[in-house]
Write a protein that binds this DNA or RNA. Sequence first.
DNA 1: TTCCATGATTCTAA
DNA 2: TTAGAATCATGGAA
Length: 479
Amino acid sequence: MEDGQRMYSQQGGLTNMSGNVLPQYNMGQDEPSDQRKQEIGDILQQIMTITDQSLDEAQARKHTLNCHRMKPALFSVLCEIKEKTVLSIRNSQEEEPPDPQLMRLDNMLIAEGVAGPEKGGGSSAAANATAAASGGQPDSAIEHSDYRAKLAQIRQIYHTELEKYEQDLDLSDGSEIKNSDYEAKLAQIRQVYQTEYGKYEQACNEFTTHVVNLLREQSRTRPIAPKEIERMVTIIRKKFAAIEMQLKQSTCEAVMILRSRFLDARRKRRNFSKQATELLNEYFYSHLSNPYPSEEAKEELARKCGITVSQVSNWFGNKRIRYKKNINKAQEEANMYAAKTAAAAAANVGSEGGAAGYNVGGGQAGMYMNLNGGDNYQSSDNSVGDNVQNQVNALRHVISQSGGYSSDSMHSTPASMYEQHMNQQITPHSRSQNGSPHDPKPEDSTDSWCAGAFMQGLDGDGDNYDGSSDEPGLKRPKI
DNA sequence: TTCCATGATTCTAA
DNA sequence: TTAGAATCATGGAA
């Protein structure tokens, strides 16, 4: 009230802080000084007590005050007093540099492509978000139930959205991120961030508008200058910058977790189990004429090996290229698997008493024989008896060619076979009938994916140990 | 510690 | 979209 009392000039008129009499208002110079003092005192008293009154009374009082002839002059002086006292303290806080932490967050989000100038996430926000840690003026400066209700509502929305945000990103399961998933996850983070940022901006704007309207309304009964409203907007923006900071921190954390999982997934490499490798090799060498398993076959292999279809595809890709690069070793391996397969088939024949007892689903040999029936790389004749016979033929062939299973004979590889292999090599590309590299081999095709000679070394027709078309007198390379 | 095997990724061609 | 080829990075044996 001291400031208010200073408005009374010694001359009996209204003066500003500089002591100058305000000439623009009709101050009623001809009125007695005591009367004017009393009148102004009444006005001030009404203003001070207006918040103690009921809503209806306050509204009525507001109207009376607004219509009072001295109100403009009085408010002008009050605003000036406020400007030069309370608000001057704030002025010193306004020119703070941008928050370095927020700038770092902005930089990271921009670098990761999550936020950027075109997305409205980075620079514009940073411009608004200067110095998040300012004082708590809004709460103390504006005592209004609407304000508090709105603030509580926004806080609740913020926390709800924060929970939703973390749920949407769904990075808490500890699962590994594959390369193909990385971009998708990053895009998901980007989308969630932009959505949440949009909500944040909307809430910020709504709240700012609400407070501005509130202050304008109050300016009818309180000395609130437009400049003060502008400052209040700035303060609100700063307050909301804390929310923005939280949002950006959460997003950065999500990106870092994603990247960490992704890199971990790349680094981690576990060899497949021995059994899985055996199954894959058996399939590979039994389909050496066309080692391109169908999707169904891949799925079956993946299921049996306990790996993914992608891993099966990788394995076959690696196997094909490494087989071609190191044919000598591959031949040894092929012989081993051929013998093993045939032995298993023969064992089935012996134990089950013939073709009728062939165990399609059981055993490793049965496994790929079963797959053969599904992808049709095998002979079109899929009768159980023929399959068993094929296995037996293959076994006989391997044994006859190798002279048993001695390591010496298994490891010796005639140059003629290698040369023939290299000369007759046919890639799927060149074999393709319509130019597509992934066309499956026609069922009746008798050509070879790689090294028909090598397959001849197994059963002579390049058709997965199918001895049915083997010529009795066909001379096989000596192993 | 080194070397090799191997699963995975990336790039290119078809 | 798939396969081939090159390459990377890790696991495991020597």
